[in-house]
């Protein structure tokens, strides 16, 4: 089977910093991959490279078997319509009511778009009344749900979840994690989530990949995570300060 997304030898350098250094990773259709790794190991950059927001220096990025690195203009637009995105912090338009945020990319009459927004609100467990509120009036957890509703509204086959539980309390975070898992399963979405929240990993992932120093240094099914004897992975999942992962700038 052809992977939905396949990165091979992807490299990216910003000035003197080699952020991606020959990164290889693949996701199969309808699979949920979670990429874990410390801050600054190139996780967000990887997603931006796939979306074509950042050009890569070397390597290949294929979606459904087609090379997408270097696309421009209409081809890039067409490429991007396959992706939904849940950003850190939600990134909603404060000036627009919830329903207009959710239906931003949809076409049709305002009445059609409003009712599509209400359907998507129901999918994330929010009542129709929320549709007319401004996003600034919502709690952090509700904003995340609205952002989720927006990410699925155009029914993209692939969705990226960038640190979906950042800034949420553990209970709200658990609700969002379960919701992501349900949506991904029900809508048969191919998902890539980047996080350093182990609770997200256990609730969302089919497969886990560990990023370190611009490479994927381990990847395998969620069930194999706890039995994994990779020292980097062990240090990450136990959250230990001692191990091969050194904080940048720390003294040895």
């Amino acid at each position: 089977m052809i992977p939905r997304i396949e990165l091979t030898g992807v490299s990216k350098r910003f000035g003197s910093r080699q952020v991606l250094d020959g990164l290889d990773v693949a996701v199969m259709p309808s699979e949920s991959l979670v990429i874990i790794g410390g801050s600054g190991t190139g996780k967000s950059v990887t997603l931006k490279c796939i979306l074509g927001l950042i050009p890569i220096d070397a390597g290949s990025i294929k979606v459904d078997g087609q090379e997408v690195a270097g696309l421009k203009g209409a081809a890039l637009d067409a490429h991007r319509t396959r992706f939904g995105m849940l950003f850190q912090g939600g990134a909603l338009f404060d000036s627009l009511p919830v329903w207009r945020n959710i239906s931003f990319a949809l076409s049709g009459t305002p009445a059609d778009r409003r009712s599509a927004a209400i359907d998507n609100l129901a999918r994330v467990g929010l009542a129709a009344e929320v549709a007319d509120l401004k996003s600034a009036e919502l709690s952090g957890g509700m904003q995340k749900r609205v952002a989720l509703a927006r990410a699925i509204a155009a029914r993209p086959p692939i969705i990226f979840f960038d640190e979906p539980t950042v800034g949420l309390d553990p209970i709200t975070a658990a609700v969002i994690n379960r919701l992501i898992r349900t949506l991904v399963t029900d809508l048969k979405i191919t998902a890539i989530t980047i996080t350093h929240d182990m609770a997200s990993v256990r609730l969302i992932a089919d497969r886990v990949a560990m990023s370190h120093a611009g490479k994927i240094i381990w990847n395998g099914p969620l069930a194999g995570l706890d039995a994994c004897d990779n020292a980097y992975v062990r240090q990450f999942i136990t959250g230990s300060a001692d191990g091969p992962i050194q904080m940048p700038g720390a003294r040895p």
Binding site: L51, L53, A74, L76, D77, R80, T81, F83, G84, M85, F87, A91, F104, A105, R150, A154, P156
Partner: peptide, 13 residues
Amino acid sequence: YDELAAREQVPVG
């Protein structure tokens, strides 16, 4: 424009 287009799933044009 690029970031907004990716975030909102709307073509840049």
